[in-house]
Simulated assay, not measured.
Amino acid sequence: MPADTLKQVEPDNAGAFVVRPYSLTAPELGGLPAVLASAPTPVLAWVRYPATADQVHGHALAWTPRAVYIEWEGEGTHRAWVWASAVERPATSDKADSSTPPQQQANVLTVLNTQPAVALINAQLTQNGSEFVASMTQPAGPFGVVVFGSIEGEPVRLALSVNAATDMCAVGLSNLVSKEILSERAAPTFEEAIEAFPWAAALDALAPD
Rank of each mutant, 00 (worst) to 15 (best):
T100S: 14
T25N: 12
Q115F: 10
V118Y: 00
S23T: 13
V145D: 00
G144Q: 04
P142S: 11
S38E: 13
L6S: 07
T77Y: 04
S161I: 05
E152Y: 01
A45V: 04
E88L: 12
S174P: 09
T166K: 04
F148L: 15
Q8A: 06
P198M: 09
V118K: 00
L160F: 01
A193G: 08
A37W: 00
E195A: 11
V87E: 01
V43D: 00
P142D: 05
G153R: 08
Q103Y: 12
G15A: 02
P90W: 05
I194H: 02
W199A: 00
W72Q: 07
F197L: 03
A80G: 05
H57T: 15
R79Q: 11
V118A: 01
P50N: 13
V108L: 14
H57N: 15
T41M: 08
I194F: 04
N128Q: 14
S150C: 09
S135G: 15
I70D: 01
P198E: 07
K7L: 15
E192R: 14
P65K: 03
Q124G: 14
A26G: 02
G172K: 04
V111Q: 11
Y22F: 14
A106R: 00
A51N: 10
A193P: 02
T64P: 09
L120M: 11
L120F: 07
L158Q: 02
P27Q: 05
A200H: 10
F148R: 12
E28L: 04
D12R: 10
A84F: 02
P208N: 10
A26K: 05
K7D: 10
P42Q: 04
A205Q: 13
E184T: 06
Q115V: 10
P11E: 00
A34V: 01
H78I: 00
W72I: 05
A165T: 11
A34K: 00
A84G: 07
A200C: 04
A37V: 05
M1Q: 15
R157V: 01
P139A: 08
A45G: 06
V43M: 04
D167Q: 07
T137I: 11
V171C: 07
E191R: 04
K7R: 15
P102M: 08
P208W: 11
A62W: 06
E195Q: 11
E131I: 14
A164T: 06
A165P: 03
A80R: 06
L158K: 01
Q115K: 12
T137K: 09
W81Y: 03
